[in-house]
Amino acid sequence: MLALEVKNLKKTYQNGVVALKGIDLEVSEGDFFALLGPNGAGKSTLIGIISSLVNASEGETKVFGVSVQKDRSRAMAEIGLVPQEVNFNQFEKPFDIIVNQGGYYGVPRAVAKERAEYYLKKLELWDKAFTMSRALSGGMKRRLLIARAMVHEPRLLILDEPTAGVDIEIRRSMWQFIEEINRAGTTVILTTHYLEEAENLCRNIAIIDHGEIVENTTIKHLLSKLDIETFILDLRAPIETVPSIDGIELALKDPHTIEASIPKSRSLNRLFRALEEAGIEVTSMRNKVNRLEELFIRLVNAEGQTSQESVA
């Protein structure tokens, strides 16, 4: 079954800005789906329409087969939304915020209280449950948004940049929690600017740019399209020139660092053999950028150029 089905979705704002140009998208039940795109690409508009905060100009959105436009209440009952911006009442306590949210979804107060305690403990916020929420740190507020979105146990959880501005330790614990939720059967749609987050967590991906889907496939398939990878090699001793290796592009960034661009068809062994023959000792090696990031930049740039050309 499809958790989300988006058909020919268009949105033009009153000021004339075309945010979505007819998007088609499908997310299967149980999927962990990444929705990526640069700022202003249309991600937030799309999420706004799915969660009924934004009215679509044209097209239809279905959540588990129920149309958001035709049967809003039943569609909304299945969605949990973690918004990009903190949008709870900062003069209320986390426990009350979650219990009230449960009430809006018809969760009886006693059950909502139990769930509030469960999710606050799970997200390591229980000791702050009865503190005024404006006193929480940025990371705590983000976790509270997740706990609030889970209180009615939605079948589709939408996370709009949930880890923005969150330190790596908390980010990792949030990933763990979200993975756990997904394993338990909740479909997850994630938008993020941390592309390693999408690469590590998600199975399928859509990239949106200028209001259009420019890529929609599995993460594995997308990564297989990466024909050249760039590595940074740290050297033990300084060098003045780089050796020439057939089919591999080497550039000296500084006397202790080489940047190597290697087509997927070439073996890394070949690079290391050549370096060894030239008397160069490599102490460490890393990807220049995250693999998904590299593809993302290429896809978005390509789309940008196409748009510019078509405008020209």
Partner: peptide
């Protein structure tokens, strides 16, 4: 305070 969104996205 934008917390009206809690109600607007509810059923």
């Amino acid at each position: 305070g934008k917390h009206i969104e809690e109600l607007l996205i509810s059923p």
